[in-house]
């Protein structure tokens, strides 16, 4: 853990009500529930709150196109200079890689204008080589796993 928190006092929002588990239709709409199923419970790297509670990601910020197998997640770091943005992005990517069928192309970006080094972060998150390299780093992987742990419960 860093000795000083980057955002010491985040605003915590209420959780949304969960949708019921059983969909009445015969075939569930494929991945439109990505958010409620997979992403909302990811923990913030700094605080014991979920990304949903901190409004880092919302349901509206996720675009899914099942036909074209494409997912785009836009997230909003809590503060502009947040150095955790890459970790959050990496967690989102890893979680989606583990949860979605391999046919999906995942695109993760920081919401425009919410981060100081927006372009750099976006580039880093969507570079396959750099993501793979990051995941070779045991320290980083530990951190990501810690964030993802609650979302498997």
């Amino acid at each position: 853990m860093v000795s000083q928190l980057i955002n010491a006092n985040p605003v915590v929002y209420e959780k949304k009500e969960r949708r019921s588990r059983c969909a009445p239709s015969d075939v569930d709409e494929v991945i439109s529930l990505t958010f409620s199923q997979h992403l909302r419970d990811i923990k913030d790297p700094e605080h014991p709150y979920s990304l949903e509670e901190l409004k880092v990601i919302t349901e509206d910020a996720i675009e899914v196109d099942d036909q074209r197998s494409y997912v785009r997640v836009t997230f909003t770091p809590t503060v502009e200079h947040c150095s955790m943005a890459t970790i959050i992005g990496l967690s989102l990517r890893v979680k989606l890689m583990r949860s979605l069928p391999p046919r999906f192309k995942v695109d993760i970006r920081v919401a425009p204008g919410t981060h100081a080094t927006e372009a750099a972060v976006n580039k880093q998150l969507n570079d396959k080589e750099r993501v793979a390299a990051a995941l070779e780093n045991p320290g980083l992987v530990d951190m990501v796993d810690e964030c993802l742990a609650p979302s498997y419960a």
Binding site: A23, D28, S99, Y152
Partner: peptide
């Protein structure tokens, strides 16, 4: 993970 049923997908992730 690509199962038509949501519950199956959820279990598959776990």
């Amino acid at each position: 993970l690509d199962d038509p049923k949501r519950i199956v997908r959820q279990e598959a992730v776990k």
